[in-house]
Write a protein that binds this DNA or RNA. Sequence first.
DNA 1: AGATATCGGAACCGATCGGTCAATAACTTC
DNA 2: GAAGTTATTGACCGATCGGTTCCGATATCT
Lengths: 203, 203
Amino acid sequence: MNTSKTMGRPREFDMDEVLDAMVGVFWEKGYEGTSLSDILEATGLQKGSIYKAFQNKQEMFEKALERYLRLLHAETQAVVEKASSPLAGIEAMLKRVVEESCSKQSDFRGCLAVRSMADRTAHAERAIEILQAAVASAEKGLANLIEAAQSQGEIRCDLSAKSLAEALYCYISGMLATSRITTSKARTERLVSFALHMLQPAA
Amino acid sequence: MNTSKTMGRPREFDMDEVLDAMVGVFWEKGYEGTSLSDILEATGLQKGSIYKAFQNKQEMFEKALERYLRLLHAETQAVVEKASSPLAGIEAMLKRVVEESCSKQSDFRGCLAVRSMADRTAHAERAIEILQAAVASAEKGLANLIEAAQSQGEIRCDLSAKSLAEALYCYISGMLATSRITTSKARTERLVSFALHMLQPAA
DNA sequence: AGATATCGGAACCGATCGGTCAATAACTTC
DNA sequence: GAAGTTATTGACCGATCGGTTCCGATATCT
């Protein structure tokens, strides 16, 4: 695990667990709304330990965000691959969006990434880069999925996969953004079925 | 101007100007990211004065948000009414979204309301109510506009105005949410023309 | 065993946080 | 012009902010 010639005491905490705890606080309270002591409480660490592992709060946020995106990507991938067809994959993914938007307690609704876009502050360039890359990757993944669905005739072919992916991603972001103040599950489900309807091939 | 029987020293500042200044800071830095001294700097007021007019920071935010929404509503109304037809009104409104998403400097991109949804904190119930009401009102306005367009054959009639309005609002929120980290005007314009395309009647 | 280096813990830092208050100033009414 | 009312100002408050530094303890490498 550790490769340096001589090394001292290894860290006792599990980095991923700590990052997950950080994801939780940042998701709940946002970057500015999260204090160091919030983080300490959530992780169970002490200031000294945490500042040995991270330069500052900003880096904690970046690492937590990356962890969140890594997990989100993996889970989405899994959900899609388990589906019986490309379109079924899209449907399953949208169902997960509904769950993320509604099932958890309200302070955790939506998506850490979408909330962090809004939180954008002038001096968080690295975080912005991470988010931009995540958007690009998500749209690319969607485009591939849509293209596959198109070639099976599951999705309309009169519009390019890229355009559809861009628009679908935008739409999903909208659901996740408004989900923070919206309480109706029925509403979100209506939005999802609307999206699926728009993807349908012309009758 | 002032109607009370006896009154003391009149306030020297213009409330709307102060609210506009607050809108600016909150838009740029978010609720938690904005400090009292940021607000003082932006408004030119002193702490004492501002706390005479507002209970606390939370109320400053609520009043500023209401002011923002009032202006947004009025401007949107004006843009729509000036248009030559309901659909042209929708187009003009979407054009304004593009401008809001791209033209200003990056810290002011998007929409204060959408950013504030993300900023949602547990103890800001009043702000959440304001935002919920704004969403409802915006969707209602869109639905009316869409209904008018439908009855003129400008917009597809196979879906209810209410569904279309809900979806369109969601889509717009998505544009405004991602606009904070997105730099491409071309992208947003593509998204807008996609939306208009989806509203078209079947050929 | 001995050397090394990081560990967890806590005291400590200056700065800033949101918020209060008493004194003063400007206005209306009588 | 006196009385009553309210806004302005700036000093002041305790609490907390993000971050640093020191410490003895302890796990790994040679």
